[in-house]
Nucleic acid binder design. Structure first.
Lengths: 129, 129
DNA sequence: TATTGCTATCGAGTGCGCTCTATACTTTAT
DNA sequence: ATAAAGTATAGAGCGCACTCGATAGCAATA
């Protein structure tokens, strides 16, 4: 009595394109998808849930490679909650690093803007003479 | 009495690879580079200065397209200081937007981490019983 | 029954920003 | 004189994350 869903339905429920669903399968982000007698994919509820997780990861800027690492916890025998938390904490640090990098860029942009403002001011002074 | 520099020299002084120098020329980020009798490029001091500006832009995450827009000020007749300042202010806003996006990601990551921590805590409680 | 529409696979194409390869000519060092 | 090193062009390749196209089988509707 399990419900199955077509590619189209999963695409609509996850916001991922049908092509992306298959692409994620191809790169090993999801497996074990059942097929009907015609070879059509039958996605389960838990497949949809997993795609939603992947979509969440995508939305926070995670790379495919990083998702693959996370996905490997699914096939693991050992307890994975802690591993998952640590993975997220590690990813959090990457995001913090990215923000710091942007912060540095921002400072350098501000210097540039100040530089141009000073130029504009000197030009104005020249014209006032 | 102008000094000229070879690709290699410019590469060393700017930190850009020789291939990147030519690539930047190819996509129109720099032009008017003189050649010697054998067709070898002779970069001027101002070419080097411009490459350093481009490298700065690259370091703050600017795309080639954005650099091209900025480069167009070089060939402009009208006063460009103000245009350049406004361009940088506009780019500044993009960077601020990117930071806000990362900030949102960070919040969502923290939720996830909290979720896992709660799971770990309940597991611990179960084991203590 | 015919047409439309959904699904399948495989492989190519896209956009970004390089990066590298192949081939050929020139310059410099031994 | 020869070999090594530098420069030139044109075009291919790369890594990422899709995205699209071609072709074909299967399904639902008029």
């Amino acid at each position: 009595m399990e419900n199955y869903y077509s590619s189209r339905q999963v695409s609509e429920r996850t916001g991922l394109s049908i092509h992306t669903l298959r692409y994620y399968e191809q790169v090993g982000l999801i497996d074990g998808i059942t097929r009907d007698s015609n070879g059509y994919r039958q996605y389960s509820e838990s497949d949809i849930f997993w795609f939603q997780v992947l979509n969440y990861f995508r939305s926070i800027g995670m790379t495919i490679r990083e998702m693959q690492e996370y996905a490997s916890f699914n096939n693991s025998e050992v307890p994975t909650i802690t591993a998952r938390r640590e993975f997220m904490e590690s990813y959090r640090r990457k995001v913090v690093d990215q923000m710091a990098e942007l912060e540095r860029s921002l400072d350098r942009i501000d210097e540039k803007i100040t530089f141009f403002k000073n130029l504009e001011d000197s030009n104005k002074l020249l014209q006032d003479k």
